[in-house]
Design a protein around this nucleic acid. Structure first.
Ligand SMILES: [Mn+2]
Ligand SMILES: [Mn+2]
Ligand SMILES: [Zn+2]
Ligand SMILES: [Zn+2]
Lengths: 141, 141
DNA sequence: AAACAGCAGATAATCATTATCAGAAGCAAA
DNA sequence: TTTGCTTCTGATAATGATTATCTGCTGTTT
C-alpha cells in the first residue's frame, strides 16, 4: 500500500494527513516484526526526534480505527501492531516474545472453524484470532 | 475435580495446600465465566475477608504452573482464568467483554490447524489459542 | 491569507500486574 | 503434640503499559 493510498484513506475518513501518521504507518508496513508501540517509537526517534510515545499510541489507534492496521495481544499482555489488517495466523515465541506470521493460506481452515463456532455459539461472531505458541528458531537452540 | 485431587496435585508438586489455594481453585471450577483476578477476589471477599488481591494473583500463577488452570488474554488485555486447562475455543464479546466457551468439540479442527502451522512455521509449536470475537446474546439486543 | 477544527507533544493519571518483606501457617520430624 | 524449618500470606510499594488532559501548533478549506 503506497503513501498516497494511506493519505487518501485517512482523508476519506475525515482524518488529517500528518507526517507522524505517514511515518508510523510506513514503519509498520516496512517490517514483519509486529512491533510494540514502544518499538515503533524507538525506530522513529532518530528520524523524528520530537515525536512522543503518546502520539505513537494515539496514531496507532487512529490507523486501527481506519482499518489500516490491526492490533492484537499475546500472552505477555503487550499490544502488537500489524500493517496487515487481514485475519492471519501468528506464532509467538514463549522465550523471547517474538511474533511472526505463519506462512501459508489458512483461509479455508479458519472459515471452517468460524462456521462451526457460529453454529455452536450464541454469539454474533465477527472475526477470530489464532495464535500458536512455541519456540522461535533462535530460541530452540 | 474434587478438593482432594487438587490438594494431592499440589502436594505432588511440592506445594503447600492452603485454604486460599483451595478456595481460589473452587471459585474457578464453579463457574463458566472465565473471571479476572479482580473478579475472583471480589467473589471470595465475603467468605475470606482477609484474603488479598496479591494472594489471588500469586495463587493463580501457582495453579497455572501446576497445570490445574489456564490463563489467557483477550483484546482488552486483562488476564482471564479458566479451571479447564485443555485447549478449547473462547468467544469474547466486543461490547461487554464477556468470555464464554464455544460448545462443541474442535479437537479435530484445532489439530489440523496445528499440523499445518507446524508444517509452515519454523517455530517449535507447543499450543495454540483461538478466540472468536463478536456480540454476546445480551449485547446483540 | 485567515479561520477553524483537529492534531501533536508534554505531562500526569490510571490500571493491571508484580516485587518486597515481615509475620503467619503448613508440613515433616521428633 | 510440639518443634523447627520453610513456604505462604497479606500489607504495601513499585513497575510498566496504556490512556487522559490540556495547550499550542498545523492541516485543510475558504
Ligand atoms: Mn501478522
Ligand atoms: Mn474456557
Ligand atoms: Zn524466541
Ligand atoms: Zn456482551
Amino acid at each position: 500500500m503506497k503513501d498516497k493510498d494511506v493519505a487518501q484513506i485517512l482523508r476519506d475518513k475525515g482524518l488529517r494527513v500528518t507526517p507522524q501518521r505517514i511515518a508510523i504507518y510506513e514503519c509498520l508496513a516496512g517490517t514483519t516484526a509486529h512491533p510494540t508501540a514502544e518499538t515503533v517509537y524507538q525506530q522513529l526517534h532518530s528520524k523524528y526526534p520530537s515525536m512522543s510515545l503518546n502520539t505513537v499510541y494515539k496514531t496507532l489507534l487512529v490507523l486501527e480505527a481506519a482499518g489500516l492496521i490491526q492490533r492484537f495481544t499475546t500472552a505477555d499482555s503487550v499490544f502488537r501492531y500489524d500493517a496487515n489488517p487481514a485475519e492471519h495466523v501468528h506464532a509467538v515465541c514463549l522465550k523471547c516474545g517474538r511474533v511472526s506470521d505463519v506462512p501459508g493460506d489458512f483461509g479455508e481452515e479458519l472459515e471452517r472453524l468460524r462456521a462451526k463456532a457460529v453454529g455452536n455459539s450464541d454469539y454474533n461472531i465477527r472475526y477470530s484470532t489464532l495464535l500458536v505458541y512455541g519456540l522461535c528458531p533462535e530460541c530452540k537452540r
